[in-house]
């Protein structure tokens, strides 16, 4: 039952993204139309406060629950995959108005047609797995 904490973190994240309307298709459209500050404010302030946490992790001011230092992943300098993959994701994000976490949160909000999107996303991840060796990174 040690994983109950991740269930609780998921519940909290689901409530936050619902109440903040980050799961709203309309909010995503509005963001890409530059007609509201709302989404930029959410992402910007999330990054700002996460930077503070990240700084405290790296300096060792905050340790993990076992009292050990928290290590952060250094991203490989792969720019083709991040740019091309990022652009492909951006197309889908704008069309469906939903990134991976909101897909699950919207199921809870009763938007069951989002299951088709989830099915598509699994096909997409599967296709990447099949092709990963052949793609430039």
């Amino acid at each position: 039952m040690k994983y109950v904490r991740f269930l609780l973190i998921g519940i909290l994240f689901g409530i936050i993204l619902s109440k903040s309307e980050a799961i709203s298709w309309y909010r995503i459209y509005e963001m890409f139309k530059f007609q509201s500050f709302h989404m930029y404010g959410i992402i910007g302030s999330a990054v700002f406060f996460s930077m503070i946490f990240t700084f405290l992790f790296k300096r060792g001011f905050i340790k993990n629950y076992k009292g050990k230092p928290i290590k952060l992943k250094t991203r490989k300098k792969e720019y083709i995959r991040t740019l091309v993959g990022g652009t492909i994701f951006g197309l889908g994000w704008a069309l469906a108005g939903s990134c991976p976490a909101p897909i699950f949160i919207l199921i809870g909000n009763g938007v069951f047609s989002i299951l088709i999107l989830l099915f598509g996303a699994l096909i997409g991840a599967f296709l990447y797995g099949l092709l990963s060796k052949k793609l430039p990174h």
Binding site: F89, W93, L95, A96, I116, L117, L127, G129
Partner: peptide, 19 residues
Amino acid sequence: LIVAGILIGFGTRYADGCT
């Protein structure tokens, strides 16, 4: 919806991350 999903799934894995 299927195509949007494929773009999301393929794109995020190719980019190795999402939002």
